Amino acid sequence: MKKIYPNVQARDVLEVFCFEQFSGEYFDRIQKPILRISFSYNQSLPKGGYHMLEGCIGCHKCYEVCPQKCIDINQKPVKTIHEYCLHCAKCKEICPKQVIVKI
């Protein structure tokens, strides 16, 4: 390092670091609906989003309030498409049977 940084003060500026673990999310706001991708290194992915339990009556109120329209209403119980979910909880709030849970 002395050859690269002959000045002692400049050499002190250099700090070597290493990430032991991290996680984050990438949002592609250009896509419609917005795409959300979680990533991590050396730890499990953060949990998030909402899951519909048995007991769903197929009323589709969750789909109507979802800003992303990321709920597959072609099945029962309906299913969240997690790559597009923004975790706004509007689906959970509107569900008349209260069968939507945060994961």
Rank of each mutant, 00 (worst) to 15 (best):
M1W: 00
M1I: 04
K2A: 06
K2N: 03
I4R: 01
V8K: 12
A10K: 03
D12T: 01
D12K: 13
E15Q: 11
F17W: 07
E20S: 07
E20L: 15
Q21Y: 14
F22V: 14
S23K: 10
G24S: 03
Y26S: 03
I30W: 08
I30H: 02
I30L: 05
Q31E: 11
K32Y: 10
I34L: 12
L35F: 07
L35S: 04
L35Q: 05
R36Y: 00
R36M: 03
Y41V: 10
N42E: 02
P46T: 00
P46F: 08
K47S: 06
Y50F: 15
M52E: 05
M52N: 00
M52W: 06
L53T: 11
L53M: 15
E54K: 13
I57M: 08
G58C: 09
G58R: 02
K61V: 12
K61I: 12
Y63R: 01
Y63M: 05
E64Y: 12
V65W: 13
C66F: 03
Q68S: 00
Q68H: 04
C70I: 02
N74Y: 08
Q75P: 14
K79W: 05
K79C: 14
I81P: 09
E83L: 14
Y84E: 02
Y84F: 13
C88W: 08
A89R: 11
A89P: 12
C91R: 05
C91T: 08
E93N: 15
I94D: 05
C95W: 08
P96H: 06
K97R: 10
Q98V: 13
V99E: 03
I100E: 09
V101H: 07
K102Y: 15
I103W: 07
